[in-house]
Design a protein around this nucleic acid. Sequence first.
DNA 1: GCTTGACCCTGACGTAAGGTCAGGCCGCAC
DNA 2: GTGCGGCCTGACCTTACGTCAGGGTCAAGC
Lengths: 256, 256
Amino acid sequence: MDHSVGEVAAFAGVTVRTLHHYDRIGLLRPTGRSGAGYRRYGECDLERLQQILFYRELGFSLDDIGTILDDPSTDSAAHLRRQHRLLNERIGRLRGMVAAVERALEAMTMGNALTPQERFELFGDYLADDYAKEAEERWGGTAEWDESQRKTAAYTKDDWRRLKAEGADVERRLAEAMRDGAEPSSTRAMDLAEEHRSHITRWFYTCDTAIHRGLTAMYAEDPRFRAYYDGAAPGLAEYVRDAAAANADRVEAAEG
Amino acid sequence: MDHSVGEVAAFAGVTVRTLHHYDRIGLLRPTGRSGAGYRRYGECDLERLQQILFYRELGFSLDDIGTILDDPSTDSAAHLRRQHRLLNERIGRLRGMVAAVERALEAMTMGNALTPQERFELFGDYLADDYAKEAEERWGGTAEWDESQRKTAAYTKDDWRRLKAEGADVERRLAEAMRDGAEPSSTRAMDLAEEHRSHITRWFYTCDTAIHRGLTAMYAEDPRFRAYYDGAAPGLAEYVRDAAAANADRVEAAEG
DNA sequence: GCTTGACCCTGACGTAAGGTCAGGCCGCAC
DNA sequence: GTGCGGCCTGACCTTACGTCAGGGTCAAGC
């Protein structure tokens, strides 16, 4: 019914050391130990390992994998669905690369060189392009827009990754606060709203409390943003809006 | 005409530190330096960087990338073609993972558990790799080994996939027969053993009944193979051995 | 009953591919 | 002439393991 490290390693195509490692960092603790201290892995350990390996293949860090898998609001069916989606995204991205290679080959046989921009476009930001145009129509010309443009122009792929991870983290904690029943006007929620505001200031543009109020209100109105937030937790868009407003009141009162 | 580190980093979506690193390890040395020692990257540096990033995305180590790119017998068109092939292979693997996720979801909704073997099919590629060397030490030099080498050398990724699917199918049906209580000497078990034998003959080498007898006995003895078979169903290794022996007797009797 | 060899344990150090400062030159703008 | 951003090297930190070293465990075989 249960298996030794070596067996599990053989099944899963990983080394024994990897399993030792996962045990040590608390990512995959075998449910039991034999009398002599041998690790014994049960069925659900194997299931968890499978999830781990999937997420690992998709490029997640072990740390993130731990957080993802230990989220009590996600059961294993939900993980499978998420993995399905992530895999398809990745396939799409690779197909883009295939197309780029084909273009490069074509350009080469035609005998013309590529510009640096053309050369690297597939490593660039392929995701946000859709929203970028619309955002420009909406905000273009304002001082904040210019500042944001200046700042983000220099961002690397790594910067974007870090930025998004940071933003996701704040959102996750906001959702948690909401689930825990913390009022939007509670210190906890307001502190998180403040973190949200400073995240924007840090990465995009100086977001004062007035702008923050307006921005989060817009989020709560725009169906696509609502969909995004509701994906994390239903009602989150309104919750963030209210927390941001409460925090704005607090900050403005403190500053006189 | 040439670019600074910061510019190149921005184009390519990597950090400046990464370029420093590639310079230090000799993977990408900028063609020039300014008077003050600033790195200056020319066109062909950019092309090389693009290749580097491509292979990196595909999971190659920087060391290997250096070897690949410094191979004088491969021009950039050849690289593009290779990348095209590698990308498609990777897409194929991801599609396999998508299928696995779908199977897992299906099994979950049907309420039946997966065997460790099913669970880790995709990750199991390495199993073979690990044993390849050992297999050579054990069998290298025999006529069967040579035949197997000749045959498998020409196999494509697709061939391997089909081969493994076919093998897994036979094993699954053997496990089923065992679970149903069919004696190893029953026609059903012997027929499956015969199928197993012809599978080997078809894909690897001419496996006569004597070899089949020895091979399955070895499977039953080797703890790792046992672990593999037991992953499908406990006791399967012995069952396959006995079925193969019974089938060998039957075939030898029939052939006089 | 004892050895042997495969398997397991923990601990400790090594490695790849960078991240993250620290301290210090360029070079252009104001 | 003095910031300020970009660049330099050097040095240590991090992640996800690999690779021993030293030593216990266990079933098989003599």
